[in-house]
Design a protein around this nucleic acid. Structure first.
Lengths: 130, 130
DNA sequence: TCTTGACTTGGAGCCTGCTCCAGGGTGTAG
DNA sequence: CTACACCCTGGAGCAGGCTCCAAGTCAAGA
């Protein structure tokens, strides 16, 4: 599978795929005799995984650590699990905060719907953070 | 209220407060004769609002638009509402994606707990994106 | 064989969003 | 009057994460 095909399949720019591999976010992909990358299904699963994690905001660095450990084999299982647990907790925290903000926005928009113009300053006072 | 006090109250670096004001993310703060900023409670509510929005990942640009419109008075009510609605929807989309990723991570961690070492490759196959 | 399009690398550039000076004024306590 | 902490501006610098480009190689069809 060529890089262009993978790019289309996952909607990730080819430059980004190469960049990810360069920095170790994706394990090295095998090459055809020509030197062109030839992605296996296994490679694609990594691509898919990385796409998913990045879309959720998991930092590149944590993912590089994960991939690196993975390539070192079984002995790193626990360390890898730790990364996943830690990132999951961080993500949970971010999501919680965003859910609270969503509720706040909801109320604020409602106040825009209900109240008559001129109540400008009061709108702010719905309490944002803290 | 001095900038240092606001900084402590909301845990935002003074440099960031000044930066926000510079780029129009916060309405201009009144100055004492000395030229020092003197934050009112109203200013603080803006700070609080901006802090909350930024923590949820709402882009600076959208917030600048909102603040700018706000300063133009009642006639911009509807445009402001629109910004809130749009950002709320974008945020909702991001949260949905993150919730899916959280579930995925949950399952992946469980598989780390249950299965014996050596099942490396299978772990990936839990399906990431798509 | 020639052309055209896809692939390669390495490095530069860019965008967002801060963060950190340098150089200089202010205000209060001793 | 001096010290010392705090404030100011404008601009440079930085971190994360891509994105673009030049210069060159490869391959498949006419």
């Amino acid at each position: 599978m060529t890089i262009a095909e993978v790019s289309r399949r996952y909607e990730i720019p080819v430059d980004t795929l190469r960049y990810y591999e360069r920095i170790g976010l994706l394990p090295p992909v095998n090459r055809a005799k020509s030197g062109f990358r030839d992605y296996t299904e296994g490679d694609c699963q990594w691509v898919s995984f990385i796409k998913c994690m990045r879309a959720a905001g998991i930092p590149v660095e944590a993912l590089i650590d994960y991939v690196t450990l993975f390539q070192q084999g079984d002995s790193t299982r626990e360390a890898r699990r730790q990364i996943l647990v830690e990132q999951k907790e961080l993500l949970q925290g971010r999501v919680d905060e965003q859910l609270r903000t969503l509720e706040y926005l909801e109320r604020k928009i409602q106040s825009y719907d209900q109240w008559n113009p001129g109540a400008e300053e009061r709108l702010l006072g719905l309490r944002a953070a803290e």
